[in-house]
Design a protein around this nucleic acid. Sequence first.
DNA 1: AGCTCGACCTGCACGC
DNA 2: TGCGTGCAGGTCGAGC
Length: 296
Amino acid sequence: MPELPEVETVARGLARVMEGARIAHVQLNRPDLRFPFPAGFAERLAGQRFEALGRRAKYILAHMSDGDILLMHLGMSGRFTIHEDGAEGRPGAFHHDVNTDGGTNDPHAHVVFTLENGVRVVYCDPRRFGMMDLFARSELPDHKLLKDLGIEPLGNELSGAFLNQALRTKQTPLKAALLDQRIVAGIGNIYACEALFRSGLSPRRLARTITSAGGATARSEHLAQTIRDVLSEAVAAGGSTLRDYVQTDGELGYFQHRFQVYDREGDPCVRPRCSGTVGRIVQSGRSTFFCPVCQR
DNA sequence: AGCTCGACCTGCACGC
DNA sequence: TGCGTGCAGGTCGAGC
């Protein structure tokens, strides 16, 4: 469940129970996810308090009381569930959880954080494309996975002028440029498709063709606005739920009901008076959904 | 340096 | 029913 709106939703859900809470115990059920857990991961976290949780791109960052940063990525299938009924073994408040042991019986429950107040936070990730790292705050600016990330699309930096500059020399298709985390960080396959549809721009068009030497163009301005709009609407909706629950409390995100092209191959274009049919092509190894009639 | 593509994993939906 | 195929919200790094 991993694009910016889903990660933001998860980070907020985790913040609600983690911020201010102290870790009693961390259980690792395997040595690695996408990468091995760093040496002493569980032992170093035990006893530390969560001071603040936030998001950068599709990463969740927890600032810990001993000055460490706990960095987490959900990959494609990572999920956190919160079990506030403690270790009693009762069926949880988390009603989507089919296990009565609070999720730890799930074969893909790889990490279990037990807080001193009895709350358990369980990380499940069937495909194990997610990752966790733990390092000193001083290493944050040069962290390998974070240092090359581009701007936050919901911050003040995203503008037509920014996109014009960033895409000015890009020979890659526009869709691929939106997926490039070094430019704008946090856009994934769904929201790239949706933003391009809203902006009326073809995913196949070379990125530099929406720019000009003179500065922002109408197209770059429009794209900046549609990126901002679609992501902020999705955050407000609690993200999108595709194949499973999104939020830490088991609530469903509902932005998927507002997809206009994603996963709608063969549907008529929703744009009024457009006669097009949503098509699907493969770019950068990923499905792109778009209307070949009104996206030019 | 810029760009494309395969690799990493499991699960599920589909057609035969 | 069972099996093979293709697909899934990401991204790292090899190779051109």
